[in-house]
Deep mutational scan, measured.
Amino acid sequence: DYYEVLGLQRYASPEDIKKAYHKVALKWHPDKNPENKEEAERKFKEVAEAYEVLSNDEKRDIYD
């Protein structure tokens, strides 16, 4: 669930989505996790995908 990936509720505002994305993206950035790079890359891609969908009103409506 994209909301879960970003740690958000379904009623999150666009500002909340952006803030959550930056927080979680920093947490899972591969450069910040050199000891667990493969998992970090996978999680970072999930976070980016979730943000791409939830930050676009049209894609978010379809997802919801």
Rank of each mutant, 00 (worst) to 15 (best):
D1Y: 11
Y2A: 13
Y2T: 04
Y3S: 06
V5A: 14
V5C: 14
L6H: 02
L6G: 01
L6K: 01
L6I: 02
G7R: 03
L8P: 00
L8Q: 04
Q9Y: 07
Q9M: 07
Q9V: 06
Q9W: 01
R10P: 15
R10M: 05
Y11Q: 14
Y11H: 11
Y11L: 13
A12C: 03
A12P: 01
A12F: 00
A12N: 03
S13Y: 06
S13T: 15
S13N: 06
S13H: 05
P14A: 14
P14H: 11
P14N: 11
E15I: 04
E15G: 08
E15D: 15
D16C: 04
D16H: 05
I17S: 01
K19M: 13
K19H: 14
A20D: 00
Y21Q: 02
Y21I: 01
H22E: 15
K23A: 15
K23N: 12
V24L: 14
V24Y: 14
L26S: 14
L26A: 15
K27D: 05
W28F: 10
W28Y: 14
H29R: 09
D31N: 11
D31K: 06
K32A: 10
K32N: 09
K32D: 05
N33D: 08
N33K: 07
N33L: 04
P34R: 10
P34A: 12
P34G: 11
E35S: 11
E35K: 10
E35Q: 09
E35G: 11
E35F: 06
N36A: 10
N36F: 10
K37D: 10
K37P: 08
K37G: 09
E39A: 09
A40T: 07
A40Q: 04
A40P: 01
E41K: 12
E41W: 07
R42D: 06
R42K: 06
K43C: 06
K43W: 03
F44G: 05
F44H: 05
F44R: 10
K45D: 06
K45A: 13
K45F: 11
E46N: 03
E46H: 09
E46Y: 07
A48Q: 05
A48L: 01
E49Q: 09
E49C: 06
A50I: 00
A50N: 00
Y51T: 01
Y51S: 02
Y51H: 05
E52A: 12
E52D: 14
E52L: 07
V53N: 08
L54K: 00
L54I: 06
L54S: 02
L54G: 01
S55Y: 04
S55D: 01
S55W: 01
N56E: 05
N56V: 07
D57F: 09
D57V: 14
D57T: 12
D57C: 13
E58G: 12
E58W: 08
E58C: 11
E58I: 10
E58H: 09
K59R: 14
K59W: 05
K59M: 10
R60A: 02
R60G: 02
D61P: 13
D61H: 12
D61A: 14
D61N: 14
I62N: 14
I62K: 15
Y63V: 13
Y63R: 05
Y63F: 09
Y63A: 05
D64C: 06
D64Q: 09
D64I: 02
